[in-house]
Nucleic acid binder design. Sequence first.
DNA 1: GGCACGTGCAAAAGATTATTGGCAGGTGCT
DNA 2: AGCACCTGCCAATAATCTTTTGCACGTGCC
Lengths: 110, 110
Amino acid sequence: MQTDDLTGDDLVGVLATLANPHRMRVLAALAGGRNYVSQLARELGISRALLQVHLKRLEKAGLVSATLELSEDGKAMKFYEVTPFELHLTPQALAAAALTLTDPNDVEKD
Amino acid sequence: MQTDDLTGDDLVGVLATLANPHRMRVLAALAGGRNYVSQLARELGISRALLQVHLKRLEKAGLVSATLELSEDGKAMKFYEVTPFELHLTPQALAAAALTLTDPNDVEKD
DNA sequence: GGCACGTGCAAAAGATTATTGGCAGGTGCT
DNA sequence: AGCACCTGCCAATAATCTTTTGCACGTGCC
């Protein structure tokens, strides 16, 4: 994942996702290796519910990916890992991204 | 300005600032050259009040800087220009930044 | 059955952002 | 004086994000 293969809107989404202390810590933790939800929650010292919300946001932004696995003793465990990415942000890169932003005047609701 | 001379908290602030379509357009416009508030508002097609708020946020994040100047005919005009920056975001860079995040358990209110 | 693990989801409350509209001030020109 | 520019700020609303609490479901083991 790279700066210029994202649309302006997607880039905004990714940046918004990164701009949160919890999610930054989650990403940091996963950068050290894959992990499953409950364990990750314990390591970060936050509730599982809260972590889930953040993980979903990270996943939607494409920054992490999940795999549901069965442990040896038969428990369903969801492992997350970081998607490698490399965003290079400069005024020029942002100017280019801005060109592909959705015009607020023709946004359609579902 | 670079990724690793920011604290984790500052980085979160910068990312949050960038993660907005209006601000991205403002930055894009200023990347093409300095400009003053009213003119910029006209070019972007947004209200001056709204632009001001976004410019302040950009300035607080250190992404733009302002200069108050007097035009030839005596009018006070505030010119903004982009601060050159180059943020390189990777899982590793974020992991490093996460180490300097403020612990939510010892935040003090004013 | 009762625990100790794992998962998921959703409603509600709290906190923060985004946006508008109005009003203040200033200059110079006719 | 009245108009056309420039600036700044604030109060109120609307919209969005964050966090908690509680419930549901599953497994294996004593």
